[in-house]
Nucleic acid binder design. Structure first.
Lengths: 252, 252
DNA sequence: GATCATAGTCGTCTTCCTGACGATAAGCAC
DNA sequence: GTGCTTATCGTCAGGAAGACGACTATGATC
């Protein structure tokens, strides 16, 4: 079969972002309001077209920076200051997922510490952090009682897949530290797990587990009382990326 | 930003397949010889263009059927007779990965029981099962001493990612049964783990683990001596898909 | 047919990890 | 100081896994 440009149909390729953070004890995702058709006025995941000279990861980093100002870094790259974790999630290519044309979207998952108010991207009316349950309940009601329209396109599915990825990945990796500021306490890390999993964890067993796993946490020497109560040691994320044995998610 | 078809560059979208099986005690992948430029005559992963009306999973199933005759099924669908496991792996979109044009490839991972000789696909000179180490050693030598050229495109990376996914996934899922015929013995399943992980496992502890995990294996009542030695019970894969606690991969 | 090699299956023992939970420490608000 | 909060250490029982002994049931070989 010789090379024949007419032998394959043209596609548009986009990246969509599932940006997760933990705010006020709940897992939140970044949503933008669509300013154009289709799904005008509906909430959607941030994203955009991949440019002609761009790698997929570069496109995702660019979109993340545009929407949040975050400087993402590859997990294989050395850790950075303001860096969020960014990884490819999955690719969605149903022929009917975009009514305008054939669009294949390479979804990425970003995990970020709690951020100030998001800034709106170019083609979006506004942006906000919303609890994932709120974004995923189709046709339900938000915290303020307003009816909530489901996310545009297949973004509810993408978000659900991203949340599931994050939930399972913090079990066997040190990724939960990506939700924390550079220095954090064991209790703050525990609240991350509790928010992502939606469960309560025993503070004593959690403390034993994370401080007993070599390379997970390194003490900085400082302490803080920003959570109230007795002063807590401050830690930074250690070099270990894989937790073995893993952190066990409680049953149901 | 109004809808403007010129606002995004056109891409070609393909699916590439990492088809793994266990043959003669080693993990093997399906490779096809390229019949055209670029990389003519080199080994590559099977794959092809996604058609205009096709979902990504459908395209992967079609390619798998074309190359192997296997009827793949979604993990969410009920188990089938001749069905291989098929799942999306990752998407590769480096602007330079194909010298002809901008191609984004959605790689899929397929796990299949040992099959008869593969049949060549449409645009391939030939196809064969090759041990993954042989395909991954760049510029090394094959089993017969012949020099081996590295896989075409970025297929070595894709294969490595697929192998790593398979290795980690059989830890916490019952996916290893996808490498086995419909009825199999505990020893045959153990040889799958040993081949995929490249380690030796204790037969007694393995037997205790798999027979003690509820829903993993269901006895069929029959026995076989096809492996020699004392007759072994035959099992089918049970309904459980997640192993909890997981099968532990030995250190190093 | 006796012996041997091969593979399968059942047990035991020790060690490690976890879940449950008591107890103490060190801040802050009043 | 009292009470409340959070952090941290310790103890104990139960479960799972690694190491490995012992026995079983075939086919192959002499």
């Amino acid at each position: 079969m010789p090379y024949d440009p007419s032998a394959f149909p043209p596609f548009a390729v986009t990246v969509d972002l599932v940006v997760l953070t933990v705010r006020r004890h709940s897992l939140c995702a970044l949503a933008v309001r669509r300013g154009e058709q289709p799904f005008q006025g509906r909430w959607a995941l941030p994203g955009g077209f991949v440019r002609a000279d761009e790698d997929l990861a570069q496109a995702a980093e660019r979109e993340l920076a545009e929407e949040t100002g975050l400087c993402a870094h590859d997990p294989s790259a050395p850790a950075q200051d303001n860096g969020a974790h960014l990884e490819q999630l999955a690719t969605y290519g149903d022929p009917k997922r975009d009514p305008r044309m054939r669009v294949v979207s390479v979804a990425h998952l970003a995990l970020a510490p709690d951020l100030p108010a998001p800034r709106a991207g170019g083609d979006a009316d506004g942006a906000r952090w919303a609890p994932v349950e709120e974004l995923l309940q189709q046709g339900g009601h938000g915290r303020d009682g307003e009816p909530v329209a489901p996310l545009a396109f297949d973004h509810a599915q993408i978000l659900a897949d991203g949340v599931e990825r994050a939930r399972s990945k913090i079990e066997y990796s040190s990724l939960a530290t990506a939700f924390c500021p550079p220095e954090f306490t064991v209790g703050e890390l525990r609240r991350v797990y509790e928010a992502v999993w939606g469960v309560a964890l025993d503070p004593r067993n959690f403390h034993r587990k994370v401080t007993g796993t070599p390379g997970f946490l390194v003490p900085t020497g400082g302490t803080t009382t920003r959570q109230g109560g007795r002063p807590a040691q401050l830690f930074r994320a250690g070099g270990a990326t894989l937790l073995n044995p893993p952190m066990l998610r409680p049953e149901v």
